[in-house]
Design a protein around this nucleic acid. Structure first.
Lengths: 341, 341
DNA sequence: GTCAAATGAGAAAACGTTTTCTCAATGAAA
DNA sequence: TTTCATTGAGAAAACGTTTTCTCATTTGAC
């Protein structure tokens, strides 16, 4: 019935149901006036022939395409994928589809994608990236549709979402303290990252003044180097490491093992990002702070939808709480459940 | 000029250029007949006001939306992301945008996404997955638009693309042999994977009959276990391991190091997938077979476009050659370049 | 000067919807 | 019966393009 060359239009439907096009439309949308029997007949025929309205035609008239764009410069997709999943999940049952545009760091490419999306009359654009304190290489401040920023820096007066990294760090430290650790060291990424400063700030605040923070890069190598540096200097050694991401944690655990130091018995480890593919494969599996990027995506999706519908949305930065995903790198005494705020 | 409420339509453009709508349209599309001066004037005004035609209106008329859908059940995006990048790269400068739909393994969700895309009149759908010998949880055999399968099993008479895993395995083995290795063992994933059989088949063919193949799972743990098993059994030890993926390779390297066996001096390692984030962070960095999924995506994109334009495309499975990405896990004597077929 | 061909440009139809307007038929109140 | 409100349903306009027609004017050949 379907299939063969082009879909059924409302004109076909109207003919089959023996009504006019306008009546057919009104029947389907539960608007207008007509006999109940007529309305049901149209609906029944529609169901039978599998009629689905052409969204292009609807969009032309309604000025709503039920389409949004997700712009990202995060090539690996490590941050973008969860965000995308959240956006999609929030919007799919409202009939909204998502254009994904990976623009690397190329402004020209970005412009091409943005233009293509605007031509297609997207109802809004969500900008996302790989770093919360950097802008995308393209200026979205005067595109003619609403824009929401997620995990990337937005312009002034923009609506943006990011995780509450200070909260994440606090969760980690409190967990370590609660499991009896006294001397916690924070091994993290480059200090010019906003999230590094957020996390280390909270770390210092919660641990007290003296606590050590080591800044480096986002790599396993740095995790190993940091451990080497700590354990080859004199003085008391830490009984816990809070690492700035899961890769650093991985490097640290490897280096500890090589030194014959046991995790979690001698040293407990907490990571950041909860990058499943790393955290869960480690031995022992890594307890890690999850930024809940999917939820962030969900909220960004709902917000862009609200904006598209003309609802007012307060500009500003919204931060979302983190979660601690407990695995075995902090000891087995700990409950295995997740901890939420 | 732009921005304020709604974009300029061709009607505005025509008025500003002092011509009729039809003349404006023909001027922009270099069709129809008119004075050269008129044509240029229209184009100039269009440029000045930044006119861009509404793709919804164009699509309504032309039956082409310049939009395609990418359907995937690969949640991590490990395979989907490179494919997506290739698709997008191939299509963006032809004005085609891509809907990304992650459907997990949920048929109902898949149907919702497919329906939404069809409503939006996508010109075609590319189906992609996480495993070459499994179907998506939804039947695409009678959607009314062209479908191309990439890195997932397509129906009979479908057009599909996958990497030539036998070729990849051959590349790996020949590289190891060329660098003087004699006793190569293949440590790979579960035998019920088509790609495992492809690779191990080629491995056996190239190494000669006696060569050992160990089937297991796709994890670091299995890589470690395999090394333990090999080195704790009696007999001559291998001087090279060809691993079924990069995670297995990683586990193997870790286990070897713990045994004091040097990589690459004592044992050379080649991985599969060239998953940058794993392969490049390892120490030593891992030489790995790259399935060139981006190229696969590019070709899928071009193919779906051809189909959308009504060009005939031969059904069947197309396999694409792999590349060997040489890093340091096979010795430094080897050239540092990539090897292609 | 006549006629055919070429040129320049606009009118109108079409794409598939939704929405507003119109109108005839029905029913009820006087 | 007349009048008026209500009901059911269709006609037409609109959304922003592209394309096909039509037509008046100019050009060129004789």
């Amino acid at each position: 019935m379907r299939g063969k060359g082009g879909r059924q239009t409302i004109r076909d439907l109207a003919a089959m149901a023996g009504v006019s096009i306008s009546t057919a439309s009104k029947a389907l949308n539960d608007t207008g006036r007509m006999g109940e029997e007529t309305r049901q007949r149209v609906k029944r025929v529609a169901r039978e022939i599998g009629f689905r309205p052409n969204a292009l035609a609807q969009g032309l008239l309604s000025k709503r395409s039920f389409t949004i764009g997700l712009l990202t410069n995060d090539t690996y997709g490590r941050f973008t994928l969860p965000v995308m999943a959240g956006v999609s999940e929030a919007l799919v049952d409202r009939g909204v589809s998502v254009f994904l545009c990976a623009i690397e760091d190329d402004p020209a490419l970005g412009q091409v994608h943005v233009d293509a999306m605007l031509d297609k009359q997207v109802d809004g654009i969500i900008a996302t990236g790989k770093r919360v304190d950097r802008r995308l290489p393209i200026d979205l401040s005067d595109v003619p549709v609403p824009v929401v920023y997620a995990f990337t820096e937005g312009g002034p007066d923009s609506v943006s979402f990011r995780s509450d990294d200070a909260h994440g760090a606090t969760l980690a430290v409190e967990w370590l303290k609660a499991s009896g650790r006294q001397r916690i060291v924070h091994v993290t990424g480059p200090e010019d990252f906003f999230s590094v400063r957020e996390r280390s700030g909270a770390f210092r605040a919660v641990t007290g003044n003296g606590a050590t923070v080591l800044f480096g890069e986002w790599s396993e190598t740095w995790g190993r180097d940091a451990v080497d540096r700590i354990w080859s200097s004199p003085g008391e050694k830490p009984d816990a490491l809070f690492c700035g991401n899961d890769q650093i944690a991985r490097g640290a655990v490897d280096a500890l093992r090589e030194r014959g130091i046991r995790v979690p018995e001698d040293v407990a480890i907490v990571g950041f990002d909860n990058w499943e593919i790393v955290a869960a494969q480690m031995r022992p599996p890594l307890t890690s702070v999850d930024m809940d990027l999917k939820e962030l995506g969900r909220q960004a999706g709902l917000t862009i939808l609200a904006l598209a519908e003309g609802q007012p949305v307060e500009p500003g930065v919204r931060t979302l709480p983190c979660r601690l995903v407990v695995r075995q790198s902090c000891g087995v005494g700990s409950p295995k459940t997740e901890k939420r705020r």
